[in-house]
Design a binder for these strands. Structure first.
Length: 574
RNA sequence: CGGGAUGUGGCCCAGCUUGGUAGGGCACUGCGUUCGGGACGCAGGAGUCGCGCGUUCAAAUCGCGCCAUCCCGACCA
Protein backbone atom coordinates (compact mmCIF):
# COMPACT_ATOMS: atom_id res chain seq x y z
CA UNK A 1 0.00 0.00 0.00
CA UNK A 2 1.15 3.52 -0.77
CA UNK A 3 1.71 5.49 2.39
CA UNK A 4 0.42 8.64 0.70
CA UNK A 5 -3.00 7.00 0.36
CA UNK A 6 -3.15 5.36 3.78
CA UNK A 7 -5.12 6.62 6.74
CA UNK A 8 -2.24 6.39 9.17
CA UNK A 9 -2.21 9.42 11.46
CA UNK A 10 0.94 9.15 13.58
CA UNK A 11 1.78 11.52 16.37
CA UNK A 12 4.90 12.58 18.14
CA UNK A 13 3.29 13.71 21.36
CA UNK A 14 2.41 11.26 24.08
CA UNK A 15 -1.32 11.61 24.71
CA UNK A 16 -1.86 13.16 28.12
CA UNK A 17 -4.36 10.52 29.23
CA UNK A 18 -2.39 7.43 28.20
CA UNK A 19 -0.40 5.89 31.01
CA UNK A 20 0.95 2.55 29.81
CA UNK A 21 3.42 2.16 26.98
CA UNK A 22 1.22 0.00 24.80
CA UNK A 23 -1.59 2.53 24.97
CA UNK A 24 0.72 5.46 24.22
CA UNK A 25 2.25 3.66 21.28
CA UNK A 26 -1.02 2.40 19.86
CA UNK A 27 -2.33 5.95 19.80
CA UNK A 28 0.89 7.48 18.49
CA UNK A 29 1.20 4.79 15.81
CA UNK A 30 -2.29 5.56 14.58
CA UNK A 31 -3.71 2.16 15.58
CA UNK A 32 -6.51 3.23 17.88
CA UNK A 33 -8.49 6.24 19.04
CA UNK A 34 -10.45 6.54 22.25
CA UNK A 35 -14.11 7.37 21.83
CA UNK A 36 -14.89 7.49 25.53
CA UNK A 37 -13.68 5.79 28.68
CA UNK A 38 -12.95 2.14 27.92
CA UNK A 39 -14.27 2.31 24.35
CA UNK A 40 -11.93 2.47 21.39
CA UNK A 41 -11.99 2.65 17.60
CA UNK A 42 -9.46 0.68 15.63
CA UNK A 43 -7.88 2.49 12.69
CA UNK A 44 -6.62 0.61 9.62
CA UNK A 45 -3.20 -0.22 11.04
CA UNK A 46 -4.62 -1.39 14.37
CA UNK A 47 -7.31 -3.44 12.74
CA UNK A 48 -4.78 -5.21 10.55
CA UNK A 49 -2.97 -6.41 13.66
CA UNK A 50 -6.28 -7.44 15.22
CA UNK A 51 -7.01 -9.52 12.14
CA UNK A 52 -3.58 -11.13 12.30
CA UNK A 53 -4.33 -12.36 15.80
CA UNK A 54 -7.85 -13.39 14.86
CA UNK A 55 -6.62 -15.40 11.92
CA UNK A 56 -4.07 -17.27 13.98
CA UNK A 57 -6.77 -17.95 16.57
CA UNK A 58 -9.17 -19.12 13.88
CA UNK A 59 -6.67 -21.48 12.30
CA UNK A 60 -5.73 -23.11 15.56
CA UNK A 61 -9.31 -23.36 16.77
CA UNK A 62 -10.38 -24.99 13.52
CA UNK A 63 -7.40 -27.30 13.68
CA UNK A 64 -8.50 -28.33 17.17
CA UNK A 65 -11.90 -29.29 15.83
CA UNK A 66 -13.88 -26.26 17.00
CA UNK A 67 -16.43 -24.66 14.69
CA UNK A 68 -17.00 -20.95 14.30
CA UNK A 69 -20.39 -19.39 15.03
CA UNK A 70 -21.61 -15.87 15.68
CA UNK A 71 -23.87 -15.27 18.65
CA UNK A 72 -25.95 -12.21 19.48
CA UNK A 73 -24.49 -9.45 21.57
CA UNK A 74 -27.89 -8.38 22.89
CA UNK A 75 -29.28 -11.00 25.21
CA UNK A 76 -32.63 -11.30 26.99
CA UNK A 77 -32.77 -11.09 30.78
CA UNK A 78 -34.69 -14.37 31.02
CA UNK A 79 -31.66 -16.33 29.92
CA UNK A 80 -29.54 -14.78 32.63
CA UNK A 81 -32.24 -15.28 35.21
CA UNK A 82 -32.26 -18.93 34.28
CA UNK A 83 -28.55 -19.32 35.00
CA UNK A 84 -28.84 -17.15 38.09
CA UNK A 85 -26.35 -14.62 36.84
CA UNK A 86 -28.85 -11.81 36.28
CA UNK A 87 -28.54 -11.32 40.03
CA UNK A 88 -25.04 -12.62 40.58
CA UNK A 89 -23.06 -10.92 37.81
CA UNK A 90 -23.45 -7.46 39.27
CA UNK A 91 -22.88 -4.05 37.80
CA UNK A 92 -20.46 -5.20 35.13
CA UNK A 93 -23.49 -6.45 33.25
CA UNK A 94 -24.86 -3.55 31.24
CA UNK A 95 -28.65 -3.82 31.36
CA UNK A 96 -31.26 -1.92 29.41
CA UNK A 97 -34.84 -2.09 28.24
CA UNK A 98 -36.40 -2.11 24.80
CA UNK A 99 -39.51 -0.15 23.75
CA UNK A 100 -41.74 -2.78 25.31
CA UNK A 101 -39.94 -2.50 28.64
CA UNK A 102 -38.43 -5.95 28.23
CA UNK A 103 -35.04 -6.29 29.88
CA UNK A 104 -31.83 -7.12 28.06
CA UNK A 105 -28.12 -6.99 28.61
CA UNK A 106 -25.07 -6.62 26.43
CA UNK A 107 -23.21 -9.92 26.45
CA UNK A 108 -20.10 -9.86 28.63
CA UNK A 109 -19.65 -13.57 27.90
CA UNK A 110 -21.87 -16.16 26.23
CA UNK A 111 -22.37 -19.24 28.40
CA UNK A 112 -26.12 -18.62 28.57
CA UNK A 113 -26.64 -18.10 24.86
CA UNK A 114 -24.52 -21.04 23.77
CA UNK A 115 -26.13 -23.35 26.33
CA UNK A 116 -29.56 -22.30 25.14
CA UNK A 117 -28.52 -22.97 21.57
CA UNK A 118 -27.02 -26.35 22.24
CA UNK A 119 -29.76 -27.67 24.50
CA UNK A 120 -32.30 -27.14 21.75
CA UNK A 121 -30.31 -28.77 18.99
CA UNK A 122 -28.33 -31.50 20.70
CA UNK A 123 -30.38 -34.40 21.99
CA UNK A 124 -28.18 -37.47 21.91
CA UNK A 125 -24.71 -38.64 22.87
CA UNK A 126 -24.20 -39.29 19.14
CA UNK A 127 -24.02 -35.52 18.60
CA UNK A 128 -21.33 -35.07 21.22
CA UNK A 129 -18.71 -33.79 21.72
CA UNK A 130 -19.05 -30.34 20.20
CA UNK A 131 -16.91 -27.25 20.49
CA UNK A 132 -18.31 -23.97 19.16
CA UNK A 133 -16.47 -20.67 19.16
CA UNK A 134 -16.89 -17.12 18.02
CA UNK A 135 -14.84 -13.96 17.67
CA UNK A 136 -17.04 -11.13 18.73
CA UNK A 137 -17.35 -7.88 20.63
CA UNK A 138 -18.05 -8.16 24.33
CA UNK A 139 -19.19 -5.47 26.72
CA UNK A 140 -18.31 -5.39 30.39
CA UNK A 141 -19.05 -2.26 32.34
CA UNK A 142 -15.73 -2.32 34.19
CA UNK A 143 -15.58 -0.47 37.50
CA UNK A 144 -12.42 1.23 36.37
CA UNK A 145 -11.37 0.87 32.75
CA UNK A 146 -7.66 1.55 32.32
CA UNK A 147 -4.51 0.84 30.37
CA UNK A 148 -6.12 1.50 26.99
CA UNK A 149 -7.40 -1.61 25.27
CA UNK A 150 -5.92 -3.83 27.98
CA UNK A 151 -8.77 -3.32 30.39
CA UNK A 152 -11.57 -1.69 28.50
CA UNK A 153 -15.32 -2.03 28.45
CA UNK A 154 -15.95 -2.91 24.84
CA UNK A 155 -13.47 -5.42 23.50
CA UNK A 156 -13.01 -8.21 21.00
CA UNK A 157 -12.85 -11.70 22.37
CA UNK A 158 -12.64 -15.21 21.05
CA UNK A 159 -14.82 -17.41 23.19
CA UNK A 160 -15.24 -21.15 22.75
CA UNK A 161 -17.55 -23.56 24.53
CA UNK A 162 -17.20 -27.32 24.62
CA UNK A 163 -19.94 -29.83 25.35
CA UNK A 164 -19.15 -33.39 26.29
CA UNK A 165 -21.03 -36.48 27.34
CA UNK A 166 -18.75 -37.40 30.22
CA UNK A 167 -15.84 -36.29 32.37
CA UNK A 168 -13.27 -38.12 30.29
CA UNK A 169 -14.51 -36.36 27.18
CA UNK A 170 -14.54 -32.98 28.91
CA UNK A 171 -11.00 -33.59 30.05
CA UNK A 172 -10.00 -34.26 26.48
CA UNK A 173 -11.74 -31.14 25.18
CA UNK A 174 -9.89 -29.11 27.79
CA UNK A 175 -6.57 -30.61 26.81
CA UNK A 176 -7.22 -29.83 23.16
CA UNK A 177 -7.91 -26.21 23.95
CA UNK A 178 -4.90 -26.04 26.23
CA UNK A 179 -2.74 -27.25 23.36
CA UNK A 180 -4.43 -24.92 20.87
CA UNK A 181 -3.78 -21.95 23.17
CA UNK A 182 -0.12 -22.84 23.46
CA UNK A 183 0.04 -22.96 19.67
CA UNK A 184 -1.77 -19.65 19.30
CA UNK A 185 0.42 -17.63 21.62
CA UNK A 186 3.59 -19.24 20.34
CA UNK A 187 2.55 -18.39 16.78
CA UNK A 188 1.90 -14.80 17.86
CA UNK A 189 5.57 -14.64 18.79
CA UNK A 190 4.88 -14.00 22.47
CA UNK A 191 6.77 -15.00 25.58
CA UNK A 192 4.04 -16.50 27.74
CA UNK A 193 3.28 -18.99 30.45
CA UNK A 194 0.22 -21.07 31.27
CA UNK A 195 -0.58 -20.77 34.97
CA UNK A 196 -3.09 -22.38 37.29
CA UNK A 197 -5.84 -19.96 38.19
CA UNK A 198 -8.90 -19.42 40.31
CA UNK A 199 -12.06 -19.81 38.29
CA UNK A 200 -13.81 -16.70 39.63
CA UNK A 201 -17.38 -15.78 38.86
CA UNK A 202 -17.51 -17.74 35.61
CA UNK A 203 -17.39 -20.66 37.97
CA UNK A 204 -16.29 -24.18 37.41
CA UNK A 205 -13.77 -26.48 38.88
CA UNK A 206 -10.44 -26.04 37.16
CA UNK A 207 -8.74 -23.43 35.06
CA UNK A 208 -5.54 -22.10 33.53
CA UNK A 209 -4.66 -18.58 32.52
CA UNK A 210 -2.29 -17.77 29.68
CA UNK A 211 -0.04 -14.97 30.76
CA UNK A 212 2.14 -12.85 28.52
CA UNK A 213 5.18 -12.04 30.60
CA UNK A 214 5.60 -8.29 31.04
CA UNK A 215 6.75 -6.07 33.87
CA UNK A 216 3.67 -3.89 33.46
CA UNK A 217 1.32 -6.85 33.85
CA UNK A 218 -1.60 -6.54 36.25
CA UNK A 219 -1.24 -10.09 37.53
CA UNK A 220 1.42 -11.53 39.76
CA UNK A 221 2.53 -15.05 38.96
CA UNK A 222 4.27 -17.50 41.23
CA UNK A 223 6.34 -20.12 39.49
CA UNK A 224 8.70 -22.85 40.61
CA UNK A 225 12.32 -22.48 39.66
CA UNK A 226 12.73 -26.24 39.58
CA UNK A 227 9.58 -27.75 38.08
CA UNK A 228 6.80 -26.63 35.72
CA UNK A 229 4.50 -25.36 38.45
CA UNK A 230 3.14 -21.86 37.80
CA UNK A 231 0.05 -20.17 39.20
CA UNK A 232 -1.66 -16.85 39.48
CA UNK A 233 -0.69 -15.38 42.83
CA UNK A 234 -4.30 -15.44 43.97
CA UNK A 235 -4.32 -19.19 43.40
CA UNK A 236 -0.71 -20.11 44.16
CA UNK A 237 -0.63 -22.98 46.61
CA UNK A 238 1.91 -23.33 49.33
CA UNK A 239 3.35 -26.72 50.13
CA UNK A 240 1.49 -28.37 53.00
CA UNK A 241 2.84 -28.47 56.54
CA UNK A 242 5.71 -30.56 57.74
CA UNK A 243 4.86 -30.03 61.38
CA UNK A 244 7.43 -30.55 64.00
CA UNK A 245 6.23 -32.37 67.06
CA UNK A 246 5.16 -29.68 69.46
CA UNK A 247 6.54 -30.43 72.86
CA UNK A 248 4.17 -29.38 75.58
CA UNK A 249 7.08 -29.09 77.94
CA UNK A 250 8.10 -25.88 76.17
CA UNK A 251 4.80 -24.23 76.94
CA UNK A 252 5.02 -21.24 79.21
CA UNK A 253 2.13 -19.84 81.19
CA UNK A 254 -0.04 -17.30 79.40
CA UNK A 255 0.57 -13.68 80.31
CA UNK A 256 -1.83 -10.84 79.68
CA UNK A 257 -0.04 -7.61 78.89
CA UNK A 258 -1.40 -4.12 78.68
CA UNK A 259 -0.77 -2.73 75.18
CA UNK A 260 -2.52 0.64 75.07
CA UNK A 261 -3.56 1.59 71.56
CA UNK A 262 -1.22 -1.00 70.04
CA UNK A 263 -3.09 -2.69 67.21
CA UNK A 264 -1.14 -3.48 64.09
CA UNK A 265 1.46 -6.21 63.75
CA UNK A 266 4.19 -3.60 63.39
CA UNK A 267 3.05 -1.81 66.54
CA UNK A 268 2.73 -5.02 68.55
CA UNK A 269 6.08 -6.26 67.31
CA UNK A 270 7.96 -3.15 68.38
CA UNK A 271 5.99 -2.58 71.60
CA UNK A 272 6.60 -6.11 72.89
CA UNK A 273 9.92 -6.46 71.13
CA UNK A 274 9.03 -9.72 69.42
CA UNK A 275 9.48 -10.78 65.79
CA UNK A 276 6.37 -10.62 63.61
CA UNK A 277 6.86 -14.36 63.05
CA UNK A 278 6.08 -14.87 66.73
CA UNK A 279 2.72 -13.14 66.45
CA UNK A 280 -0.53 -14.72 65.31
CA UNK A 281 -2.77 -12.34 63.44
CA UNK A 282 -6.49 -12.90 63.93
CA UNK A 283 -8.71 -11.59 61.16
CA UNK A 284 -12.45 -11.68 61.45
CA UNK A 285 -14.22 -12.29 58.17
CA UNK A 286 -17.86 -11.87 57.35
CA UNK A 287 -18.63 -15.00 55.35
CA UNK A 288 -22.19 -14.82 54.05
CA UNK A 289 -23.22 -12.95 57.19
CA UNK A 290 -21.42 -15.17 59.73
CA UNK A 291 -18.23 -14.33 61.53
CA UNK A 292 -15.21 -16.54 61.08
CA UNK A 293 -11.76 -16.02 62.56
CA UNK A 294 -8.78 -16.68 60.34
CA UNK A 295 -5.44 -17.14 62.08
CA UNK A 296 -2.26 -16.40 60.29
CA UNK A 297 1.36 -15.68 61.11
CA UNK A 298 2.18 -12.02 61.65
CA UNK A 299 4.42 -11.68 58.63
CA UNK A 300 1.92 -13.30 56.23
CA UNK A 301 -1.06 -11.98 54.28
CA UNK A 302 -4.41 -13.69 54.09
CA UNK A 303 -5.50 -14.84 50.65
CA UNK A 304 -9.19 -14.02 50.66
CA UNK A 305 -9.89 -16.25 47.68
CA UNK A 306 -8.47 -19.24 49.48
CA UNK A 307 -10.56 -18.40 52.54
CA UNK A 308 -13.65 -17.95 50.42
CA UNK A 309 -13.10 -21.24 48.62
CA UNK A 310 -12.26 -23.07 51.83
CA UNK A 311 -15.43 -21.84 53.53
CA UNK A 312 -17.40 -22.43 50.36
CA UNK A 313 -18.90 -18.97 50.84
CA UNK A 314 -20.69 -16.91 48.21
CA UNK A 315 -19.28 -13.64 49.54
CA UNK A 316 -16.65 -12.83 52.11
CA UNK A 317 -15.27 -9.57 53.34
CA UNK A 318 -13.45 -8.33 56.40
CA UNK A 319 -15.95 -7.96 59.20
CA UNK A 320 -17.11 -4.51 60.25
CA UNK A 321 -16.54 -3.09 63.74
CA UNK A 322 -19.89 -4.30 64.97
CA UNK A 323 -19.27 -7.90 63.99
CA UNK A 324 -15.75 -7.77 65.46
CA UNK A 325 -17.08 -6.42 68.72
CA UNK A 326 -19.70 -9.15 68.86
CA UNK A 327 -17.23 -11.95 68.15
CA UNK A 328 -14.32 -10.72 70.27
CA UNK A 329 -15.85 -8.40 72.79
CA UNK A 330 -13.21 -5.84 71.86
CA UNK A 331 -12.72 -3.17 69.21
CA UNK A 332 -10.66 -3.74 66.06
CA UNK A 333 -7.00 -4.48 66.70
CA UNK A 334 -7.23 -6.77 69.73
CA UNK A 335 -8.76 -9.94 68.30
CA UNK A 336 -7.33 -13.27 69.33
CA UNK A 337 -8.35 -16.90 69.22
CA UNK A 338 -8.55 -17.39 72.97
CA UNK A 339 -12.19 -17.30 74.00
CA UNK A 340 -13.43 -15.94 70.70
CA UNK A 341 -17.08 -16.55 69.88
CA UNK A 342 -16.98 -17.81 66.27
CA UNK A 343 -15.45 -20.44 64.01
CA UNK A 344 -11.66 -20.57 63.97
CA UNK A 345 -9.67 -21.70 60.99
CA UNK A 346 -5.93 -21.34 60.71
CA UNK A 347 -3.19 -21.28 58.17
CA UNK A 348 -0.74 -24.19 58.16
CA UNK A 349 2.06 -21.85 59.09
CA UNK A 350 0.89 -21.45 62.68
CA UNK A 351 0.56 -25.19 63.27
CA UNK A 352 3.85 -25.60 65.05
CA UNK A 353 4.14 -22.19 66.66
CA UNK A 354 4.63 -22.17 70.42
CA UNK A 355 4.39 -19.41 73.00
CA UNK A 356 3.15 -16.86 70.50
CA UNK A 357 1.62 -13.43 70.90
CA UNK A 358 -1.96 -12.70 69.97
CA UNK A 359 -4.78 -10.28 70.75
CA UNK A 360 -6.54 -10.71 74.09
CA UNK A 361 -10.10 -9.95 72.90
CA UNK A 362 -9.94 -7.09 75.37
CA UNK A 363 -9.27 -3.50 74.53
CA UNK A 364 -5.59 -2.51 74.97
CA UNK A 365 -4.44 -6.03 75.89
CA UNK A 366 -2.44 -8.75 74.15
CA UNK A 367 -1.56 -12.25 75.31
CA UNK A 368 1.91 -13.75 75.43
CA UNK A 369 2.83 -17.44 75.44
CA UNK A 370 -0.35 -18.63 73.84
CA UNK A 371 -0.40 -22.24 72.61
CA UNK A 372 -2.76 -24.12 70.36
CA UNK A 373 -4.52 -27.01 72.04
CA UNK A 374 -4.04 -25.69 75.53
CA UNK A 375 -5.49 -22.19 75.16
CA UNK A 376 -7.90 -22.65 72.25
CA UNK A 377 -8.87 -25.15 69.59
CA UNK A 378 -8.68 -24.68 65.86
CA UNK A 379 -11.51 -26.11 63.77
CA UNK A 380 -9.08 -26.94 60.97
CA UNK A 381 -5.80 -25.98 59.37
CA UNK A 382 -5.56 -25.09 55.71
CA UNK A 383 -3.55 -23.18 53.13
CA UNK A 384 -5.01 -19.71 53.55
CA UNK A 385 -2.23 -17.24 52.94
CA UNK A 386 -0.78 -15.44 49.95
CA UNK A 387 2.39 -17.03 48.66
CA UNK A 388 5.66 -15.17 49.06
CA UNK A 389 8.84 -15.48 47.02
CA UNK A 390 10.87 -18.34 48.39
CA UNK A 391 7.89 -20.32 49.66
CA UNK A 392 8.16 -24.08 49.09
CA UNK A 393 6.76 -25.32 45.78
CA UNK A 394 3.59 -27.37 46.21
CA UNK A 395 4.70 -29.84 43.53
CA UNK A 396 8.36 -30.46 44.16
CA UNK A 397 11.18 -29.64 46.53
CA UNK A 398 11.93 -26.30 44.85
CA UNK A 399 10.94 -22.79 45.85
CA UNK A 400 8.68 -20.34 44.07
CA UNK A 401 9.71 -17.10 42.39
CA UNK A 402 7.51 -14.22 41.26
CA UNK A 403 6.96 -12.55 37.91
CA UNK A 404 4.32 -10.34 36.36
CA UNK A 405 2.07 -11.08 33.44
CA UNK A 406 -0.89 -9.97 31.37
CA UNK A 407 -3.75 -12.42 31.15
CA UNK A 408 -4.52 -12.92 27.47
CA UNK A 409 -6.33 -16.22 27.60
CA UNK A 410 -8.23 -18.33 30.06
CA UNK A 411 -9.45 -21.91 29.86
CA UNK A 412 -12.07 -23.24 32.28
CA UNK A 413 -13.48 -26.62 33.02
CA UNK A 414 -17.03 -25.58 33.77
CA UNK A 415 -18.49 -28.96 34.59
CA UNK A 416 -22.27 -28.80 34.79
CA UNK A 417 -22.65 -25.34 36.30
CA UNK A 418 -24.59 -23.97 33.33
CA UNK A 419 -25.84 -27.16 31.73
CA UNK A 420 -27.50 -28.13 34.99
CA UNK A 421 -29.05 -24.75 35.68
CA UNK A 422 -30.27 -24.47 32.12
CA UNK A 423 -31.07 -28.12 31.53
CA UNK A 424 -28.70 -28.89 28.70
CA UNK A 425 -29.22 -32.62 28.67
CA UNK A 426 -28.88 -35.47 26.21
CA UNK A 427 -29.95 -39.08 25.98
CA UNK A 428 -27.09 -41.46 26.62
CA UNK A 429 -26.53 -44.88 25.07
CA UNK A 430 -28.44 -46.46 27.95
CA UNK A 431 -31.49 -44.33 27.23
CA UNK A 432 -31.01 -42.24 30.34
CA UNK A 433 -31.05 -38.45 30.39
CA UNK A 434 -27.71 -36.95 31.37
CA UNK A 435 -26.32 -33.47 31.84
CA UNK A 436 -23.71 -32.23 29.40
CA UNK A 437 -20.30 -31.32 30.71
CA UNK A 438 -19.02 -27.96 29.59
CA UNK A 439 -15.81 -26.07 29.21
CA UNK A 440 -15.23 -22.49 28.16
CA UNK A 441 -12.19 -20.88 26.66
CA UNK A 442 -11.51 -17.17 26.09
CA UNK A 443 -8.86 -15.08 24.40
CA UNK A 444 -8.79 -11.29 24.56
CA UNK A 445 -7.88 -10.24 21.03
CA UNK A 446 -7.16 -6.56 21.62
CA UNK A 447 -5.44 -7.37 24.88
CA UNK A 448 -3.18 -9.79 23.08
CA UNK A 449 -2.17 -7.02 20.70
CA UNK A 450 -1.48 -4.61 23.58
CA UNK A 451 0.38 -7.29 25.51
CA UNK A 452 2.54 -7.93 22.48
CA UNK A 453 3.53 -4.26 22.44
CA UNK A 454 4.26 -4.28 26.17
CA UNK A 455 6.71 -7.03 25.40
CA UNK A 456 8.17 -5.56 22.20
CA UNK A 457 9.03 -1.87 22.10
CA UNK A 458 11.93 0.55 22.44
CA UNK A 459 12.37 4.30 22.71
CA UNK A 460 11.48 4.71 19.03
CA UNK A 461 8.26 2.77 19.04
CA UNK A 462 6.74 -0.65 18.49
CA UNK A 463 8.76 -3.66 17.37
CA UNK A 464 6.32 -6.14 15.87
CA UNK A 465 7.17 -9.80 15.79
CA UNK A 466 6.71 -10.89 12.18
CA UNK A 467 3.47 -12.87 12.69
CA UNK A 468 1.57 -9.87 14.10
CA UNK A 469 3.19 -7.12 12.04
CA UNK A 470 0.56 -5.15 10.11
CA UNK A 471 3.03 -5.06 7.22
CA UNK A 472 6.25 -7.03 6.94
CA UNK A 473 8.23 -4.45 5.01
CA UNK A 474 8.34 -0.73 4.40
CA UNK A 475 10.11 0.61 1.32
CA UNK A 476 11.43 4.12 1.90
CA UNK A 477 12.85 6.13 -0.98
CA UNK A 478 14.97 8.82 0.63
CA UNK A 479 13.97 11.49 -1.85
CA UNK A 480 11.01 11.01 -4.15
CA UNK A 481 12.20 13.76 -6.46
CA UNK A 482 15.15 11.70 -7.64
CA UNK A 483 13.89 9.69 -10.58
CA UNK A 484 16.33 6.77 -10.29
CA UNK A 485 15.62 6.36 -6.61
CA UNK A 486 11.87 6.47 -7.14
CA UNK A 487 12.06 4.04 -10.04
CA UNK A 488 14.11 1.53 -8.03
CA UNK A 489 11.80 1.85 -5.02
CA UNK A 490 8.73 1.38 -7.21
CA UNK A 491 10.29 -1.73 -8.71
CA UNK A 492 11.01 -3.25 -5.32
CA UNK A 493 7.53 -2.35 -4.12
CA UNK A 494 5.78 -3.98 -7.05
CA UNK A 495 7.98 -7.05 -6.94
CA UNK A 496 7.29 -7.55 -3.23
CA UNK A 497 3.59 -7.03 -3.81
CA UNK A 498 3.63 -9.53 -6.67
CA UNK A 499 5.25 -12.05 -4.37
CA UNK A 500 2.48 -11.64 -1.83
CA UNK A 501 4.55 -9.72 0.74
CA UNK A 502 2.61 -7.16 2.78
CA UNK A 503 4.43 -3.94 2.14
CA UNK A 504 4.08 -0.19 2.66
CA UNK A 505 5.58 2.04 -0.01
CA UNK A 506 6.48 5.32 1.68
CA UNK A 507 5.96 7.51 -1.37
CA UNK A 508 5.32 10.64 0.69
CA UNK A 509 7.18 13.82 -0.14
CA UNK A 510 8.76 13.92 3.30
CA UNK A 511 12.31 14.23 4.51
CA UNK A 512 14.09 10.96 5.24
CA UNK A 513 14.06 11.57 8.99
CA UNK A 514 10.29 11.78 9.06
CA UNK A 515 9.95 8.53 7.14
CA UNK A 516 12.44 6.72 9.37
CA UNK A 517 10.77 7.93 12.55
CA UNK A 518 7.35 6.83 11.35
CA UNK A 519 8.64 3.45 10.17
CA UNK A 520 10.21 2.84 13.58
CA UNK A 521 7.15 4.09 15.45
CA UNK A 522 4.70 1.79 13.68
CA UNK A 523 7.18 -1.02 14.12
CA UNK A 524 7.47 -2.56 10.66
CA UNK A 525 10.04 -5.40 11.02
CA UNK A 526 11.98 -4.70 7.83
CA UNK A 527 12.80 -1.42 6.11
CA UNK A 528 14.31 -1.10 2.68
CA UNK A 529 15.92 2.30 2.25
CA UNK A 530 16.57 3.42 -1.30
CA UNK A 531 19.04 6.30 -1.58
CA UNK A 532 20.99 7.71 -4.46
CA UNK A 533 24.51 7.03 -3.18
CA UNK A 534 23.98 3.34 -2.51
CA UNK A 535 21.85 2.92 -5.58
CA UNK A 536 24.70 4.17 -7.75
CA UNK A 537 26.63 1.11 -6.53
CA UNK A 538 23.61 -1.10 -7.25
CA UNK A 539 22.70 -1.36 -3.57
CA UNK A 540 19.86 -0.58 -1.22
CA UNK A 541 19.79 -0.82 2.57
CA UNK A 542 17.95 -3.41 4.59
CA UNK A 543 17.29 -2.40 8.16
CA UNK A 544 16.08 -4.88 10.79
CA UNK A 545 13.83 -3.09 13.29
CA UNK A 546 14.34 -5.64 16.04
CA UNK A 547 18.15 -5.61 16.10
CA UNK A 548 18.83 -2.24 14.55
CA UNK A 549 21.12 -3.93 12.07
CA UNK A 550 21.38 -1.99 8.80
CA UNK A 551 23.00 -3.85 5.94
CA UNK A 552 23.59 -3.26 2.28
CA UNK A 553 21.82 -5.52 -0.13
CA UNK A 554 22.09 -5.70 -3.88
CA UNK A 555 19.10 -4.07 -5.54
CA UNK A 556 18.57 -7.26 -7.56
CA UNK A 557 18.66 -9.42 -4.46
CA UNK A 558 16.78 -7.52 -1.85
CA UNK A 559 13.35 -8.98 -2.55
CA UNK A 560 14.66 -12.53 -2.24
CA UNK A 561 16.53 -11.62 0.93
CA UNK A 562 13.44 -10.07 2.47
CA UNK A 563 11.35 -13.10 1.55
CA UNK A 564 13.88 -15.33 3.19
CA UNK A 565 13.85 -13.37 6.46
CA UNK A 566 10.06 -13.29 6.57
CA UNK A 567 9.78 -17.01 5.88
CA UNK A 568 12.32 -17.91 8.50
CA UNK A 569 10.72 -15.68 11.16
CA UNK A 570 7.26 -17.01 10.42
CA UNK A 571 8.59 -20.54 10.59
CA UNK A 572 10.34 -19.89 13.86
CA UNK A 573 7.03 -18.87 15.41
CA UNK A 574 4.98 -21.69 13.89
C1' C B 1 -17.81 3.95 45.83
C1' G B 2 -13.39 6.57 48.74
C1' G B 3 -8.73 9.62 47.83
C1' G B 4 -5.99 12.74 44.23
C1' A B 5 -5.20 15.40 39.60
C1' U B 6 -6.67 17.55 35.10
C1' G B 7 -10.13 20.00 31.51
C1' U B 8 -7.70 26.38 26.89
C1' G B 9 -8.01 25.23 18.08
C1' G B 10 -6.81 18.11 15.81
C1' C B 11 -2.25 16.99 19.50
C1' C B 12 1.20 18.78 23.67
C1' C B 13 1.02 22.93 26.81
C1' A B 14 1.53 28.41 28.84
C1' G B 15 -1.82 32.13 30.70
C1' C B 16 -5.33 31.71 36.32
C1' U B 17 -1.77 33.57 42.15
C1' U B 18 -2.78 39.75 41.17
C1' G B 19 -10.10 39.77 36.59
C1' G B 20 -9.25 44.12 31.47
C1' U B 21 -7.72 42.60 23.27
C1' A B 22 -7.12 34.33 24.04
C1' G B 23 -1.21 32.80 23.34
C1' G B 24 3.18 29.31 21.98
C1' G B 25 4.97 24.65 19.82
C1' C B 26 3.41 20.55 16.70
C1' A B 27 -0.14 19.50 12.87
C1' C B 28 -2.99 21.94 8.66
C1' U B 29 -3.30 25.58 3.73
C1' G B 30 -0.29 28.64 0.09
C1' C B 31 4.59 30.30 -1.79
C1' G B 32 9.89 29.85 -1.65
C1' U B 33 14.42 27.51 0.06
C1' U B 34 16.06 22.70 1.85
C1' C B 35 16.36 17.20 1.30
C1' G B 36 19.76 10.30 4.81
C1' G B 37 17.04 10.28 11.58
C1' G B 38 10.76 14.33 13.23
C1' A B 39 14.13 21.32 8.26
C1' C B 40 13.70 26.81 7.64
C1' G B 41 11.43 31.59 6.15
C1' C B 42 7.10 34.43 4.87
C1' A B 43 1.80 34.57 4.63
C1' G B 44 -2.78 32.16 6.29
C1' G B 45 -7.11 29.15 8.33
C1' A B 46 -8.81 27.10 12.75
C1' G B 47 -10.78 28.01 19.81
C1' U B 48 -18.81 29.11 22.73
C1' C B 49 -11.16 28.61 27.38
C1' G B 50 -15.71 21.21 29.74
C1' C B 51 -21.10 22.83 31.09
C1' G B 52 -24.44 25.81 34.15
C1' C B 53 -25.42 29.46 37.76
C1' G B 54 -23.42 33.45 40.46
C1' U B 55 -20.01 37.87 41.86
C1' U B 56 -18.35 42.15 38.82
C1' C B 57 -18.62 47.80 34.63
C1' A B 58 -15.77 43.44 32.96
C1' A B 59 -14.53 36.25 34.12
C1' A B 60 -10.16 31.33 30.83
C1' U B 61 -8.85 33.84 35.62
C1' C B 62 -12.96 34.60 41.62
C1' G B 63 -17.31 31.49 44.13
C1' C B 64 -20.92 27.44 44.00
C1' G B 65 -22.92 23.20 41.46
C1' C B 66 -22.52 19.60 37.69
C1' C B 67 -20.05 16.72 33.84
C1' A B 68 -15.93 14.34 31.59
C1' U B 69 -11.01 12.16 31.57
C1' C B 70 -6.79 10.05 34.07
C1' C B 71 -4.14 8.05 38.46
C1' C B 72 -4.22 5.34 43.48
C1' G B 73 -7.46 2.21 46.29
C1' A B 74 -11.85 -0.94 46.70
C1' C B 75 -13.71 -4.35 42.92
C1' C B 76 -13.09 -7.56 38.71
C1' A B 77 -13.13 -13.83 33.13
Amino acid sequence: MRYSEMHLPTGREIPSDAEVVSNQLMIRAGMIRKLTSGIYSYLPLGYRVIRKVENIVREEMNKAGAQEVLLPMVQPAELWQESGRWTYYGKELLRFKDRNQREYCLGPTHEEVITELVRNDIKTYRQLPKNLYQIQTKFRDEVRPRFGVMRCREFGMKDAYSFDADEAGAEKSYEKMFTAYNNIFRRCGLKFRAVEADSGSIGGSYSHEFMVMAESGEDAIAFCEKCQYAANLEKAEIAGPQPKAVSESEWLPVESIETPDVRTIVEVSSFLNVESTQIVKTLIFNADGKACAVLIRGDHEVNEIKVKNYLNAAEIELADDEMILKATGAPRGFAGAVGIKCRIIADYSIMDMVNFVTGANKQDYHLKNVNIGRDFKVESFADLRIAQPGDPCPRCSGNVKFARGIEVGHVFKLGTKYSKAMKAVYLDRDGKEKTMIMGCYGIGIGRTVAACIEQNFDANGIIWPMPLAPYSVIVSPVNINEKDVMKAAEDIYSELTAQGVEVIFDDRDERAGVKFKDADLIGIPLRITVGSKNLAQGNVELKIRKTGENRLSAFQNVVAEVKKIIDSEMKEAS
